[in-house]
């Protein structure tokens, strides 16, 4: 009888440990994916000053947009605690706002034929699109890793183990409200 109880206890403890180990593995994967996003965000951040420098030469009526982008870029570049879900969420939200701001800038470029046809601007736009493609891919990897982590953290008995081990769900990298709204090209092509 005592052997049976011992085996049952061992199986339960083994199972809980496996669950815990799996959870840590998933959290590390999500953190790795988050680092992947940051690498791409850094690439974009390095590219933005060049785009803004060219844009400022031609765009007289978009000063507020250019200032907003500069401020958002500084916010995204700030260090943050990767294990703090709130800080991660804020960081990703800023990155998404910057993305949205850059999107507006790229549409606004259409209204300036000289800027649109500038060779340096064309090259910068192509590189920017490439980096945006990489950010989108990093975001998909991150969201997929976060889904796996959050499922294991929030489903019983994962929720108990997560509480004991202080493992918290991580936020998704979601599109901001502004980019979900329909875009009116007319607003930018006045």
């Amino acid at each position: 009888m005592s052997w049976t109880i011992l085996i049952i206890v061992l199986v339960i403890v083994g199972g809980l440990y496996a669950w815990y180990a799996g959870m840590i593995g998933k959290r590390n994967k999500a953190l790795e994916a988050l680092s992947g996003i940051d690498v791409q965000l850094k690439k974009r951040s390095n590219l933005i000053p060049n785009i803004l420098t060219i844009a400022q030469k031609f765009m007289d009526h978009e000063k507020s947009l250019l200032t907003e982008i500069t401020e958002l870029r500084a916010g995204v570049d700030k260090d943050y605690d990767k294990k703090d879900a709130g800080a991660v969420q804020q960081h990703l939200a800023l990155a998404e706002q910057l993305s949205s701001g850059m999107g507006k800038l790229m549409i606004a470029v259409e209204a300036y034929p000289d800027l649109k046809s500038d060779a340096v601007m064309i090259q910068a736009q192509q590189t920017y699109n490439e980096v945006e493609g990489q950010i989108a891919a990093s975001r998909r990897f991150y969201n997929s890793s976060v889904t796996a982590l959050n499922n294991s953290v929030q489903i019983f008995p994962g929720s108990l183990i997560a509480n004991m081990a202080s493992i918290v769900p991580m936020p998704f990298y979601e599109a901001d409200e502004a980019s979900k709204a329909p875009v009116s090209a007319g607003d930018y092509l006045k």
Partner: peptide
């Protein structure tokens, strides 16, 4: 490369 795979397979 998980990110590159998603970059290619949009």
């Amino acid at each position: 490369d998980q990110i590159e795979a998603r970059y290619l397979l949009t």
